[in-house]
Nucleic acid binder design. Structure first.
Length: 588
DNA sequence: GTGGTCACG
DNA sequence: ACGTACGTGACCACT
């Protein structure tokens, strides 16, 4: 039996889960919900639950969690509990219920995960549920003032509220996985791990290290690995340290140490394969729904920049990009395809427009290869743009690193490090400094825009994005110069990251609404910052792509006339775009 | 719970 | 003289 509690007045109502209603109350409630604004704390969760289980519709709703996100964008503080403690006199109202739960679990020896919330007696639950509703209402009355800020109001009404609807559908659509492929991949990965471990133990020194310690060596333990590499094997540390000052054993270090011993490469192998098996395959398989889809979370309030975050059963925003194993298991149903749309260099596109830098906008207008065109301009290369990749690959690489580095506020040191890593050739700090200098000579309006905005951030301690999101940076007043400059870089990056991801999100929201309004069968199942993933029936592919392109490139104020933001479409049976079958054979 | 590492844009 | 690239989430070992 499911139910809820409700706090109600003339302006709004708010509810929480509880027990018991009959058809009469159901009809009354539906009438109420239709006429009044219903306030949720996290509508994506509770409203979706109600609509799914009881068939209720909520034509108008508010969300105190999202209102609070507008008041303070820093993640981690948006829970009902925390906010009640901070903004109302009833901060500890949940205590009696949790005490009851603790006692009950102790008496019956029940583990946390196995506790059934339905066992809570009505008398205990009712106070908690009623207080949840009351707290939500009190928060609403406080938070609604934020609507007096027209920029934040625009974000709320045009991104967060419609975004909630969109994400409910996106999460409900679920990610289509192919079970057979998951099992094939799981087994293949386990075999690879076994082989890699066996290879590690071929090294006699590893076996002796183990004997010496009297316990088996765990390659996943950084402490044990450090001891093996630096104390026992006597390899020379690279100088790279962890946050706490210990010698690092991360991938970069291990790659360098591989010149001195065969052990580091084995560890790299084991780590990479364990990661894929533990974090992805083993995690996905037991959580699939009966329709072989995985329903995970996308959150509107998880980042300071306005990007989405993903969490829960699987973080869809960090699937391995280049290894086809996991992506290949995301496979469209028969008669369907996976359609993956990507924005191309969206953040730079946004920067060009915001800075009103004609030279940079011209790069987008010219339509050639982006980084080649940039290199051609910055270094005045005596060849055609099409020849840059072949004739001046180093220059192209440097220009690319500078382009991205600038978006983050990187200095010569970081740029030189990055180019050296990417190209495998030493690129000095001085070369980096010269390149940055050349770059800004070519794109001088961009430099001025960066300078102006950094000054604004430093002076005001906040900044607004193009679409009206606010980034508060009180640490610009810190006495610590490192913290201060980090705040300023953050604020600058916010301007481009936020607007770019909003272009993607607004496009997806409109596409989602269009799909519904036109009874299309296409199903958007994930957003990854600047891409939109969907499972699309074959006969709908042209229609879907055409409309999605339209909605993403639609002029929402951030468009270069004649050169809308670039969109890449990839279409195949699975999300690895065919690479999975090549790797594992054509039968799966 | 923290630190280290690694997955993504 | 020094630090110095933005934004995330998940898993593992260890305390």
């Amino acid at each position: 039996m499911l139910g809820f509690s409700l706090a109600y007045n003339d302006k709004c109502g708010a509810y929480i889960d509880t027990d018991c209603f009959d058809e009469t109350t159901e009809a009354l409630l539906q009438e109420l919900f239709t006429k009044k604004i219903v306030v949720f704390h996290n509508a994506k969760f509770d409203m979706a639950f109600f609509e799914y289980h009881f068939g209720f519709k909520f034509p108008r709703f508010e969300d105190t969690m999202l209102l609070h996100y507008l008041i303070d964008e820093n993640p981690g503080g948006h829970g009902l509990k925390q906010l009640t403690l901070k903004f109302t006199p009833f901060g500890d109202y949940e205590k009696p219920m949790y005490e009851w739960i603790d006692n009950y679990r102790k008496e019956h020896g029940i583990l946390k995960d196995q506790f059934n919330w339905g066992d809570i007696p009505f008398d205990v639950m009712k106070t908690y549920a009623a207080m949840d509703a009351l707290a939500t209402f009190l928060l609403y009355e406080k938070f609604i003032k934020i609507k007096q800020n027209p920029k934040l109001l625009w974000v709320y009404e045009n991104i967060l509220i419609p975004g909630t609807r969109f994400l409910i559908d996106t999460q409900d659509n679920g990610v289509p996985f192919d079970k057979k492929r998951l099992y094939v991949a799981q087994e293949a990965m386990q075999n690879d791990i076994d082989e890699a471990i066996a290879a590690l133990y071929e090294n006699e020194k590893v076996r002796r290290f183990e004997e010496l310690n009297g316990k088996s060596f765990n390659p996943n333990s950084t402490v044990q690995l450090r001891s093996l590499l630096f104390d026992y094997l006597g390899l020379n540390p690279t100088g790279k340290k962890t946050g706490t000052g210990a010698d690092s054993t991360d991938a970069e270090v291990l790659k360098e140490l591989a010149l001195q011993s065969d052990v580091p490469q084995r560890i790299l192998d084991i780590r990479q394969k364990s990661k894929i098996k533990n974090t992805y395959l083993d995690k996905i398989i037991p959580q699939l729904d009966r329709d072989s889809r995985l329903r995970t979370g996308f959150n509107l309030h998880g980042t300071t920049s306005g990007r989405l975050s993903s969490s829960g059963k699987l973080n869809m925003q960090q699937l391995p990009r280049d290894n086809p194993t996991v992506k290949g298991c995301i496979k469209a149903a028969p008669g369907h395809k996976i359609v993956a749309m990507d924005l191309t260099t969206a953040e730079v596109y946004v920067a060009a427009i915001l800075a009103k830098d004609e030279a940079l906008m011209d790069v987008f207008k010219s339509g050639g290869n982006f980084h080649s065109t940039i290199a051609h301009k910055v270094f005045n290369l005596p060849c055609e743009v099409e020849e840059v990749a072949e004739l001046y690959p180093d220059r192209r690489q440097a220009a690319k690193a500078v382009t991205f580095g600038i978006m983050y506020g990187a200095g010569p040191a970081k740029i030189s490090e990055q180019v050296t890593k990417d190209s495998g050739k030493v690129f000095t700090k001085q070369e980096a400094a010269e390149t940055i200098n050349d770059y800004f000579k070519t794109f001088h309006k961009l430099r001025k825009w960066i300078d102006d905005n950094q000054k604004f951030i430093e002076h005001n301690g906040f900044i607004y994005s193009y679409y009206g999101r606010k980034r508060r940076l009180p640490n610009v007043a810190s006495s610590d110069a490192g913290i201060r400059s980090h705040s300023i870089r953050s604020g600058l990056n916010f301007l481009v990251q936020s607007a770019a991801s909003d272009i993607n999100l607004l496009g997806a929201i409109d596409m989602g609404a269009y799909i519904k309004a036109n009874n299309m069968k296409s199903r958007i199942f994930a957003l990854v910052h600047d891409s939109i993933l969907a499972e699309v029936p074959e006969e709908e592919i042209d229609h879907y792509c055409e409309k999605l392109l339209h909605f993403v490139q639609m002029d929402r104020g951030l468009t270069i006339p004649g050169a809308p933001v670039g969109c890449d479409f990839e279409i195949d049976e699975d999300y690895s775009m065919g690479k999975f079958t090549k790797m594992y054979g054509t039968d799966v």
